[in-house]
Amino acid sequence: MVRSSSTIILKHKKLNNELKTKAKEIRKKILNMVMKSGGAHIGPAYSIVEILTALYFKGLRIDPNNPNWEERDRFILSKGHGCAALYVVLTEKGFFPEKELDKFCKKEGILGGHPERDKIPGVEASTGSLGHGLSIGVGMALVGKFDQKNYRVFVLLGDGECQEGSVWEAAMSAAQFRLDNLIAIVDYNKLQAIGAIDEIISLKPLKEKWSSFGWSIKEIDGHNFGEILPTLKLVPFEKGKPSLIVAHTVKGKGVSFMENKIIWHFRLPNQTELKQALEELELDK
């Protein structure tokens, strides 16, 4: 008994370490990719690296060789500006060749500053304007229920995005329609484009707000695989209710001078900064 549970712990540790290594690689690839374009959202991409890695390598039931497989889980990146992370994760997972990353934001490429369905294998919805993804997810989850399919719909929202009223329209309807096949994740990094959320339009108390809208909530550290993986396994948290994961994250996570700095919402590093960032990412943390 004791032996088998310690075996499980060891197994989990091994998996978490593998994913940590993966996340590190993904961050480096994001940086190399965006350096080839004129502009990108590094900070918003870095805060969701672990969430996307966990989803695509452990959480989602998907088949990269058959991106339109009918029974697949759906994932919508409602905060479309974080797409740099999604693109790298999709190539790591084999949805399209890695060399496509070299053409990021280039006229000959398929990867733009916001993700586009039909162009990019694995992208379920074109996003970029905030406050749209959850409603699209509601529609997909309604069809899942109607057609008695087992797929789940995951929607990743930015925290600043929750200032959009349409998010709350969608939240109300998901609870009303008892969509327990719908899972929203809020990337709660506490910063938006030009300031701290609490100093602009605060979302507090975020958990209580969603809970009063009829959702079942779990709060986690959005960079800790030891918390993300078991939480993803628990969905739906309650039968008959949509699930929300409040993922506490750090904008620009992984590079010391980018972490929690508003300027890295949209800034590109210079050569010195790039060198330092890549060195930091190389170090095992």
Binding site: G139, L142, F146
Partner: peptide, 26 residues
């Protein structure tokens, strides 16, 4: 009854959800 959905007074959500329905073949 299952193909009639009243979204309440929330047109933005209704239109977005309609897109989700159409993306799922409806």
């Amino acid at each position: 009854p299952n193909r009639f959905i009243n979204f309440g007074i929330a047109e933005q959500n209704m239109m977005g959800a309609a897109a989700g329905l159409a993306l799922s073949g409806k």
